[in-house]
């Protein structure tokens, strides 16, 4: 009989769910974050997962042994896509990985594996974009603040990059859509949640005069480096899709 599985929405939680699917032979057909409304089939069972680090670790180690680090990271990235149904897809692929011989994860002809690779690719593209499309503004108290609204939950994937790069400055990158951010205090990165929602206008209000100067200089630079004779708006928008413009100061009027 098929089961609807509820978990806490975390990666550890999903790994636990995958373990329990095997442990209790659940035949999970839907795995969703607790609180999500789903249409229950009349005869289906439900199962509540409580995140268990030990169980999660066993799945992780099993994957590491069978398919290695790269394939595991692919699954994690796919998870961060937050796409509907991603949990069950990951479950199926894990089952395939655990049953098969080695290096099955390079089987590009397998439907589910291919699907994971595709999603992984788009998450990685988003990650790469958000190494680029973060714009810090320096506040009067010397913190460099940036707001983002990525399609996928990429903050965990860009944290190290920003920590390494801006090791000597205080910074916050805040995901407005998901209502949480990263705060770096020159030694560690921590997750933070603002108690009020925040927008660009509020950011501007706390900016230093120096910030205004460099903001203007950057906008001027962006205009001056353009070659009018080569104008190619289509290509431009392809590289910097409009949905990202909101937080890019060079794209402000």
């Amino acid at each position: 009989m098929s089961t609807t599985v509820y978990y806490d929405g975390t990666w550890q939680g999903l790994l636990t769910a995958i373990f329990e699917d095997y442990e209790y032979r659940l035949q999970s057909c839907i795995i969703v974050k607790s609180g999500t409304a789903v249409t229950q089939s009349l005869f289906g069972r439900t199962h509540q997962v409580y995140t268990d680090k030990k169980k999660a670790l066993r799945v992780k180690n099993g994957l590491l042994k069978n398919v290695g680090k790269v394939a595991l990271q692919e699954l994690y990235c796919a998870f961060l896509s937050e796409k509907e149904g991603i949990e069950v897809l990951i479950l199926r692929v894990v089952q395939y990985y655990m049953a098969g011989e080695k290096s099955v994860h390079s089987n590009y002809a397998h439907e589910d594996v291919l699907q994971i690779k595709k999603i992984h690719k788009s998450v990685m593209r988003e990650r790469h974009r958000f190494k680029a499309f973060v714009r810090f503004r320096e506040s009067t108290d010397g913190i460099f603040l940036a707001l983002i609204e990525p399609d996928f939950n990429v903050l965990p994937l860009i944290s190290t990059h920003f920590k390494d790069r801006y090791a000597d400055q205080l910074w916050i990158i805040y995901d407005v859509k998901r209502q949480y951010g990263l705060h770096y205090d020159k030694s560690t990165v921590r997750e933070i949640v603002f108690d009020k929602s925040i927008d660009v206008k509020q950011l501007e209000a706390v900016c230093s005069t120096e910030e205004q100067l460099y903001d203007r200089l950057w906008k001027r630079y962006f205009q001056s480096t353009n070659i009018v004779e080569r104008k190619n708006t289509k290509l431009h928008v392809q590289h910097v899709p409009k949905r990202y413009w909101k937080y890019l100061n060079e794209k402000e009027g």
Binding site: N226, I227, V228, K231, L235, H236, H239
Partner: peptide
Amino acid sequence: ICHTYTEDGRCV
């Protein structure tokens, strides 16, 4: 990293 693109589509 290309931080932005000019209107002629080149990487900045």
